[in-house]
Amino acid sequence: MNAPADYAEALQRSSHAPVPGPGPHASIQCIVELFGAARFIAHTREVTLTLPEGATFSLVYASLAEKLPILVGRVINSDRARLMDGFACNVNGLDFVRTPTATVNAGDNILVLSADAGG
């Protein structure tokens, strides 16, 4: 088993730990990294999003849809609140996001990827 210290160290390195927020109405920034088909469709590796503090992943997808409308209907569902079947989301290379109501932390790197890792 990993010792708890191993975990703490890995998490710290990932910078996934919440960053102290600047204030209740402030905005945060996160970077969306596109992989595989999403990158192929958008012809873009990553985009920076500015979101209100406490934003959920639904809002991430909506903001991403606004910046890259070509992803709508192919990667982002037409309701712009979730990803299409076959796509998944990971935060900072560590945690896979299970629910679009989860909140985003400032400085998060959000990976949009194909859910199927078969090779």
């Binding site: 595989g36 088909a37 192929f40 469709i41 192919r74 990667v75 299409m84 079947d85 076959g86 796509f87 194909s114 859910a115 199927d116």
Partner: peptide
């Protein structure tokens, strides 16, 4: 969409 990766 579930096979988009393989097709694209």
């Amino acid at each position: 969409s579930v096979t988009t990766k393989y097709r694209l």
